[in-house]
Design a binder for these strands. Structure first.
Length: 477
DNA sequence: CAGCAGGGGGCGA
DNA sequence: CGCCCCCTGCTGG
C-alpha cells in the first residue's frame, strides 16, 4: 500500500533456509501430522511435505480426514522410505548406484515427484489437475512414469514388513523405555486403553495404508494386553505400536506430539539403529548432511541434538532441564517414552493439550535456545526458579519434583527394586516398596493387632477403624 | 457389595 | 519424607 517507491524485499537464501527449516522440523518431529511406518520403524513427517511431493500422498490425505494418520508402507524398505523422505525434505538424497533402481521403484509406488513423476512439467500438471485424484491411487500406470521401471518391480516386492518389526519390545530398546515399559507387568493400575480406531486398508500398489482416526483413549502399552481383539500378523503388531503412538500424540499439545514422536525415538527404538545412528543407508546420509548444515548455519546447538541425547541432558542435569524448559520449548521434542505412557487414567489430564505449552515457532527456538539457559538453576533445591513441564501445566520450584513429574509423562522409572520387577520414578517410592520385602511392619495399631510398614496406612487405619489418629510409634523390631 | 488392606503414583516441601 | 489419592484383591455380611 505504499505510494512511495516499491521495495522488493528478497530473502537471499530463502529456499535453502526453508528447506533447512523443514528438515529441522522433521528431525525434531515438530508439527508432524502423519506417521509413516515401515519395517517396524516410524517416521513422523508432515502431510504438507508428503502431499507436496507425492501425488499418492496428496490423494491419500484428501481422502483421509484423520488428524494424524499412520500410513504403513508395507512393501517398501525402511531405507527406501528414508531416502525418499530425505529427497522430499531436502531435495536431495544420496543413494548407492546399486540401490538406485530400488529407490526409483519405491518412488514410483509413492509417486514422488521428480523421481517417479515428472517434476512439474506444465502439461503433466495440467493433466493431473484434470484427472480425479483417485486416479493416482487406482492406477499406478497413470501419468507419472517418466522413470518407471517395471522391470525393477521385484526389487521392492519383497515383503519386509514386520520382519524386525520391533514387536512390543523394540521401541523400548531405548534406555528410556526399557524400564518404563518393563515394569508394567506388575502394575495393576494400568487400565487397558482402547483406541477408537478405524482402519482403512488399501491395497494400492501393494502398499497398505493404515489410517487411524483420532485416538481418544488412553493407551496402555502393556504389550501383553494390547488390543486382544486384533489378529496378530506381523503387520498388525506393528500397527499396534503405531497406534499407541498416535493416540498419545493426540493427547499432547501439538508440539509435544512431535516430542512424543521422538518418544518413538527412532534412533533408539530401532534396535539396529539404522535410522538415526547409522550412516550406512542412503537415507541416513541425509542426517549427516543436515547435521553438517546445522553447523554451518550455526543454529542453536540444541537443535542439533539427537533426541535421546537431549533427553539425557534434560533429565540428567538441572541446567539441561532448565534450558530445555525455558528454551521456548525447543527441546520439547526430546522426550522419549511417550509411547510408554501408562494407561493409567490419571495420566490423562497430563496429556491434555495445553495452550500454555504451545510449541514455539522455529525462530523462537533458535532464539531462545541459548538465552533460555540464563536462569538455569544449578541446584535441585533452587526454589527461586519455577520449572515448567513441557507436557502439561505443571510447574514446580523444585527440579526434582519436575523430574519426577516428567518421568510420569515419559514413563521412565529409573529406580528399580533389586528383589522384584518393581520400578518407579521416585526413590522414596522405591524405599517404601522395599519395606514390603523386608516384611517389617513397624507401625502398630494401639487398638488392635493391626500393623503395617506404612505410617500413612496406620494413620488411615486408626482413623477409619478407631476414629483416632493415635498409633504406636514405629516399633524397633 | 461394602469395607479393608496392600501397594503404588503424584505431588508438596 | 509425608501425605493424599487411587486401584486392586480379599473377605465377610
Amino acid at each position: 500500500m505504499g505510494d512511495g517507491g516499491l521495495l522488493s524485499l528478497s530473502w537471499n537464501n530463502h529456499k535453502a533456509t526453508f528447506c533447512h527449516i523443514l528438515s529441522t522440523l522433521r528431525e525434531k518431529e515438530r508439527y508432524t501430522d502423519v506417521t509413516l511406518a515401515c519395517e517396524g520403524k516410524f517416521y513422523p513427517v508432515h502431510k504438507l511435505v508428503l502431499s507436496t511431493c507425492s501425488e499418492y500422498f496428496e490423494s491419500m490425505f484428501e481422502h483421509t480426514p484423520c488428524k494424524h494418520p499412520i500410513i504403513v508402507l508395507k512393501d517398501l524398505k525402511s531405507d527406501e522410505v528414508e531416502s525418499l523422505l530425505s529427497y522430499m525434505y531436502a531435495g536431495v538424497v544420496n543413494v548407492a548406484q546399486n540401490d538406485l533402481a530400488r529407490l526409483i521403484k519405491a518412488a514410483e509406488l509413492l509417486k514422488v515427484k521428480g523421481l517417479a513423476v515428472p517434476d512439474e512439467p506444465p502439461q503433466e500438471v495440467e493433466n493431473r489437475k484434470n484427472s480425479p485424484p483417485r486416479s493416482s491411487r487406482d492406477d499406478r500406470s497413470s501419468p507419472h512414469p517418466k522413470r518407471r521401471r517395471r522391470d525393477d518391480s521385484d526389487g521392492v516386492a519383497g515383503e519386509q514388513h514386520g520382519t524386525n518389526a520391533s514387536p512390543p519390545a523394540s521401541p523400548r530398546t531405548s534406555p528410556y523405555h526399557a524400564a518404563s515399559e518393563f515394569h508394567q507387568d506388575n502394575s495393576r493400575t494400568h487400565n487397558e486403553g482402547h483406541v477408537s480406531e478405524h482402519r482403512t486398508e488399501k491395497s494400492i500398489d501393494r502398499l497398505e495404508h493404515d489410517v487411524r482416526s483420532d485416538a481418544k483413549s488412553t493407551g496402555d502399552l502393556n504389550p501383553d494386553q494390547h488390543n486382544p481383539a486384533k489378529p496378530c500378523s506381523p503387520l498388525q503388531v506393528m500397527l499396534e505400536e503405531t497406534l499407541v503412538k498416535e493416540e498419545i500424540m493426540d493427547h499432547l499439545p501439538e508440539d509435544k506430539d512431535s516430542l512424543m514422536g521422538s518418544g518413538m525415538d527412532y534412533g533408539s527404538m530401532t534396535s539396529d539403529g539404522r535410522l538415526e545412528n547409522s550412516s550406512s543407508d542412503g537415507g541416513t546420509q541425509e542426517h549427516q548432511l543436515l547435521s553438517a548444515k546445522y553447523e554451518q548455519q550455526s543454529l542453536a546447538p540444541s537443535q542439533t541434538h539427537h533426541l535421546p541425547e537431549a533427553v539425557v541432558e534434560a533429565l540428567a542435569g538441572p541446567s539441561g532441564m532448565q534450558g530445555w524448559l525455558g528454551g521456548g520449548g525447543d527441546m520439547s521434542g526430546t522426550f522419549s517414552g511417550v509411547d510408554s505412557y501408562g494407561g493409567d487414567s490419571r495420566h490423562q489430564d497430563l496429556r491434555q493439550p495445553l495452550p500454555t505449552q504451545q510449541p514455539q515457532a522455529h525462530q523462537m527456538m533458535v532464539k531462545s535456545s541459548r538465552g533460555g539457559d540464563a536462569r538455569v538453576s544449578k541446584y535441585h533445591g533452587n526454589r527461586k526458579t519455577t520449572h515448567y513441564c513441557p507436557y502439561c501445566s505443571y510447574s514446580s520450584h523444585f527440579v526434582n519434583n519436575l523430574k519426577k513429574h516428567v518421568y510420569a509423562h515419559t514413563g521412565e522409572k529409573p529406580f528399580s527394586c533389586p528383589h522384584c520387577a518393581y520400578c518407579t520414578n521416585s526413590p522414596s517410592h522405591l524405599k517404601r516398596h522395599m519395606n514390603t520385602h523386608r516384611g517389617e511392619k513397624q507401625f502398630i495399631c494401639s487398638h488392635c493387632s493391626y500393623r503395617t510398614h506404612r505410617k500413612d496406612v496406620i494413620e488411615s487405619h486408626m482413623w477409619t477403624q478407631h476414629g483416632t489418629q493415635e498409633s504406636l510409634p514405629a516399633s524397633s523390631e
